[in-house]
Structure formats: C-alpha cells, structure tokens
Amino acid sequence: MKARLTIEVNQKRHTVEVDPATPLLYVLRNNLQLNGPKYGCGLEQCGACMVLLDGKATPSCLLPVETSIGKAIVTLEGLTQPGGKLHPVQRAFVEQQAAQCGYCLNGMVISAVSLLTEQKHPDETAIRKGMERVLCRCGTQSRILRAIRQAANESNP
C-alpha cells in the first residue's frame, strides 16, 4: 500500500507517495528523478547505488525508503555546490579522468567522500579498505586511487 512519506534529500524535504517498503534507490531515481545512484545488482554487492546516509556511504538498493526517514540523504548531485562548484572529490575524479564507462562512478565518489570524512589522511590500505565495496569492471581503480589521494591532499593539506 502506498503512503505519503517525507524524506530529506540533498538538504531539501521531499514528500513522495510510495510503498514504504520501496528501496530508497527507486524513490531517488524515479520519484525524485536523480541520476546519481545507479542500479547495479540490487543485492548490496557492487556499490553502484551508494548514497550518503547521515554522512556515511550506504547502498540504497535494498534499504526500504521508510527507514531513511529523518536521516540526511545526500546523492552525487548533492555534492556539487548550488553555484555548480564541484566537491574536491568530484574535481579530483575529473582531473584524474578516473572513469571509462563511468557507471560505477557514483559509488566511487560517494564512498570516497565518506572515507575522507572519517579519515583525513587515509593510507593506501585504508583507502582500499574504504573502497572495497564498490566494483569497477572497466579497471579504472588505479585512476580512482590517484583521484582519492589527490582529493585527500587538497581537502586536508
């Protein structure tokens, strides 16, 4: 049964009429028309659907939307400043050209932001550990690692 729910996404409150069991991913993509979170596996195995939930990278493909009520949801769109200025992690991905097809990029950027919020200067092992949940098939991980090192240096000199 559908219900009216209010969730906070990218610092704005949105009221949607959906089945409360609907995974957050479909609400973000279809009701809110956001492109950042992607469907990859629907099993929390690949990380393509990552969002920040109260600042922490969380897969959204199985998470019932009702459990995200009252939490701050941030998607890839929400990282860009209102004037269009990119977040340092987004900028580092562009500068390092850290993508091929780019389908995994949402999960990569969101996970990197989450990691750099928790640890200002993660070492190589910590970066890899922080990114372990997100799969890339094009093999751009070596570029993604460079982008995260760059973002860490620039955000926390």
């Binding site: 956001l34 992607k38 780019g102």
Partner: peptide, 20 residues
C-alpha cells in the same frame, strides 16, 4: 580530457538507464 566525465560526476543523465 573527456567532457563526459564531468557530466558523470555531476550526475547528469548519461546512460540509457537514465532515460525518462
């Protein structure tokens, strides 16, 4: 540089999956 990578980090619609 590929211009589409910036579109991707900005979460612009890029893929067939993003068609609405």
């Amino acid at each position: 540089p590929r211009a589409d990578i910036e579109k991707m980090v900005r979460a612009e619609p890029v893929y067939v999956q993003d068609l609405r």
